[in-house]
Design a protein around this nucleic acid. Structure first.
Length: 519
RNA sequence: GGCCCCUUCGUCUAGUGGUUAGGACACCGGCCUUUCACGCCGGCAACGCGGGUUCGAGCCCCGCAGGGGUCACCA
């Protein structure tokens, strides 16, 4: 069988991390089976600006490398891929449902329905619509119209028996038909609702596997009813557990940012991102700049592979130890059978661990390429970069080692890029290591003179010279190192001091020491 | 509330009747060390509860509890 899966985003303006996982599983399944993965825009309820609201979502997919075979911008054999443009197909479905008696025109007002619902609730009964305003003939319909009523189209749902769904993840799930409502499939204005549209589209587009989040499980009976009544063969269903909030089992949603920020790890991740954003001079809008949204990761320099790898393991595993997967391995090893049933909480720390691992595995050249755009955005390196930037940056990135976990972390080391006169100093550290440390100035001043005469200004020589220098004076390395560090970098922490100095060069180091001594 | 789903360390998970219940992240200790970040070594830590079935149950059955999803003329 040809495998065709789909992801159907609503044009909301952002791509949710939970949605990405659903999309990833669909994509992997299709790729594994040599099938197609498509994108279909669920904009039945959207007014305008669909393109604008869709752009960030498509951009997110592109960034992650989740390519779609059919859908917006790429087209395909079953266009259009926007639900708002497929109303004729839905109308045909509604007509067929009506003609076969699987649906009926209902003239009840929303108030009337609401009253019935409340009455049922009060008497402790399950609500079942009385179908009092159902019109099965044109004569009945005309009578209701004469009363000034308008019709919606409702499903004539079965009220006895049960439906057995064989879900690829959850196994057999049984629903009593009596629990289902006569759902509306078409509004009085002729527009159709999601369930009808979704079923019609999935059939038209030859979707073989509907892989979606668990919250759709209870929608499935009505969709199966529609499909059956329309004479469609049923797709296979697979309901994934949803992605839960950090430290809880509630579904992760974009709206509850404030609540998540009370979670230490989540807040830490957001702060990490904000630090990068601030250094690039961005106004941070927490609506958008938010670890629940994929853009966040792109903007601060996460690796798409790391995110995908993390998401893959959120609800799926191959065995008891394999954690790292390349794209090819993911495609090869993924299986719906091994998807978990229980919801999995989003763990920012573990995501970061995957990111760190992926980043450290990158060849130096690629790491440099990942980091450079952040320096350019921050205005520290021009675009295009001067030709000596490559070698210089390479030295820095190499010396930084695993301190750079995300691309934006390079902005923790701006001291390599600012002119000596503009180097900001951490005042507290300057106090501690230079101003208030007895004899520090003299020591530093002496060391400066020694530095001026070093023949090779490289890390090995610097280390040797400094050690010799402190030995001669009978002092500890730490008595001098900290003062030198704050002097040449402005900061209390950084990477290897000798590497740092070698990269900065003699002229720069001497100049910075002079500036600091004058403070 | 009805219906449906779920339940192994704090978190992600392995486990399909006999295991010292394994791994990863986090956490805690130690080592390394000029700071930071790594790295290395060690440690803490779980089968929701109650009944069955069985020689034997994390694995099978029943009940309970807890958590969650869903009950729209939203998607």
């Amino acid at each position: 069988m040809l495998v065709r899966t789909r992801f159907a985003p609503s044009p909301t303006g952002y791509l949710h991390i939970g949605g990405v996982r659903t999309a990833l599983f669909n994509w992997l399944f299709a790729r594994q089976h040599g099938g197609q993965f498509l994108l279909r825009v669920d904009d039945t309820d959207q007014e305008r600006n669909v393109e604008a609201a869709l752009a960030p979502i498509l951009a997110g997919f592109r960034w992650l490398g989740l390519d779609w075979d059919e859908g917006p911008e790429v087209g395909g054999p079953y266009p259009p891929y926007y639900q708002s443009q497929r109303s004729a197909k839905y109308q045909a479905g509604v007509d067929q449902l009506l003609a076969s008696g699987a649906a009926y025109r209902d003239f009840a007002t929303t108030d009337e329905i609401q009253a019935e619902r409340e009455a049922a609730q009060q008497s402790g009964q399950q609500f079942t619509y009385s179908r009092r305003r159902m019109a099965t003939t044109d004569v009945e319909a005309a009578k209701f119209v004469a009363e000034g009523r308008q019709a919606v189209v409702r499903l004539m749902m079965p009220r006895a028996g049960e439906l057995v769904i064989n879900d690829l993840i959850r196994g057999q799930v049984v629903f009593p038909w009596a629990g289902e409502q006569d759902h509306v499939v078409q509004r009085a204005d002729g527009t159709c609702l999601y369930h009808l549209a979704s079923v019609v589209d999935d059939h038209d587009m030859q979707i073989s596997h509907v892989i979606r989040a668990e919250e759709h499980l209870s929608n499935t009976p009505r969709q199966i009813f529609i499909a059956q009544q329309l004479g469609y063969p049923l797709p296979q269903y697979a309901h994934l557990p949803y992605v839960a909030e950090p430290g809880s089992k509630n579904k992760l949603s974009k709206r509850k940012l404030d609540k998540y920020l009370k979670n230490k790890d989540f807040a830490q991740l957001k702060e990490h991102g904000e630090r990068v954003a601030q250094r690039m001079g961005w106004e941070v809008n927490s609506e958008v700049f938010n670890p629940v949204i994929v853009d966040f990761y792109e903007h601060i320099g996460f690796l798409p592979d790391a995110i995908l790898n993390y998401l893959l393991l959120l609800g799926w595993s191959l065995d008891d130890k394999t954690e790292e997967f390349t794209r090819e391995e993911m495609i090869r090893d993924f299986s719906l059978e091994r998807v978990n049933k229980a919801p999995a909480s989003f763990d920012p720390q573990k995501l970061m661990a995957f990111q760190d691992r992926a980043m450290q595995k990158l060849p130096l050249k690629q790491k440099v390429a990942r980091v450079l755009p952040f320096l350019q955005t921050a205005g520290l390196v021009s675009t295009p970069p001067p030709c000596d930037t490559g070698p210089y940056l390479s030295q820095i990135v190499e010396a930084a080692g695993d301190r750079i976990k995300i691309g934006g972390d390079i902005l923790d080391y701006t001291d390599f890029f600012v002119p000596d006169s503009e180097l900001p100093y951490d005042e507290k550290t300057l106090d501690k290591r230079l101003r208030n440390a007895p004899g520090a100035r003299e020591l530093l001043s002496d060391f400066r003179e020694r530095l001026a005469t070093i023949e090779n200004f490289d890390a090995a020589t610097l280390e040797h010279v400094l050690k010799e220098f402190v030995d001669q004076r009978g002092i500890k390395i730490s008595d001098l190192v900290h003062a030198v560090r704050v002097t040449v970098t402005g900061k209390p922490v950084g990477f290897g001091l000798f590497e740092t100095m070698a990269i900065l060069g003699r002229e720069c180091c001497l100049s910075r020491i002079d500036i600091a001594l004058a403070k």
